[in-house]
Design a protein around this nucleic acid. Sequence first.
DNA 1: AGCTTTTTGCAAATGATTTGCAAAAAGCTA
DNA 2: TAGCTTTTTGCAAATCATTTGCAAAAAGCT
Lengths: 163, 163
Amino acid sequence: MTASLPSPEERLRAAGQRVTAQRVLLLRLLDESKEHLDAEGLYERARREMPDINLSTVYRNLAVLKEAGLVEQRYFAREHGREYFEPSTSAEHYHFTCLSCGRVVEFETPLIARVRAELQARHGVRVRHACICFEGICADCAARGQTVPPSKEIIPHDPPSHV
Amino acid sequence: MTASLPSPEERLRAAGQRVTAQRVLLLRLLDESKEHLDAEGLYERARREMPDINLSTVYRNLAVLKEAGLVEQRYFAREHGREYFEPSTSAEHYHFTCLSCGRVVEFETPLIARVRAELQARHGVRVRHACICFEGICADCAARGQTVPPSKEIIPHDPPSHV
DNA sequence: AGCTTTTTGCAAATGATTTGCAAAAAGCTA
DNA sequence: TAGCTTTTTGCAAATCATTTGCAAAAAGCT
Ligand SMILES: [Mn+2]
Ligand SMILES: [Mn+2]
Ligand SMILES: [Zn+2]
Ligand SMILES: [Zn+2]
């Protein structure tokens, strides 16, 4: 059975943040989508339920939620300069993005933890967090002969890109 | 003895790019600094020798050099949204940046290559390149009690930050 | 309900990077 | 080296994601 995850309200309170309708909505939308959304994407979905919500409110709250540890920020290939988010509820994982179609593949590995340990041991630093992102060509795109990233354009194909 | 690295001119020709004074200069400045510079930083140094060089020329050439594989782009903690570069002449390495003082620590490890191999084997993707960057508190900052990153501000200390 | 603090919507500002364009330079070729 | 073609440059204006100032509205007390 799915361990029921605390509600947005509960998580906000637990994190000592004010509970506003906007924050609850944004947190719920992030939970639901179980995807990586950027401010614009979240805003689009949010306004379907709260037509007057403002884009800057989305930005401000993403910052608050991130600071509070309720969401995590990601950066993807060719989308650097665009900040994506996902709820901090899943297990530690890393990302691969396809340069051709934009698809995001999530994966786990114990090796990154070892890199951190090595880094801390060898350089005396305290690692707070890692920003890991691989890029290349996904299996589907390789199958259809996409070897070289077609310029700057990401062209999603049928199973549409789920960035 | 230091294996003499091909001159900027030679590297440009080898990469099939036109040899312009601007490109030669930028490449040389990157070599010399052996550091991570962004467009603005490079521009600053470049105009000391070529006062009329334009910032957009720097941007354009960084894109060209990157495309040609002569420089590599990096992203650092809290500086996402700002693109840094270094010559593609050094061995594969990764980065750690201090959230407190901005210092960049470079390190090597064979583990990342293993992560790539795992990723390719398990998901059938073809990894083109990895963007790896750890962040936390450097040894010096830890020694002086910096445990929590002081808000958004990066405050370099004596051995000045060499971002 | 009353009071204080935080958050919101809106509009305008930022800041890094990009782009259109005409003049200048680079790379041929003869 | 001169002539011709293609690429690059400097400059100004444009983009685009993200941020900020501000007055009104909502949240969290008491
Ligand atoms: Mn993820
Ligand atoms: Mn480096
Ligand atoms: Zn793909
Ligand atoms: Zn430090």
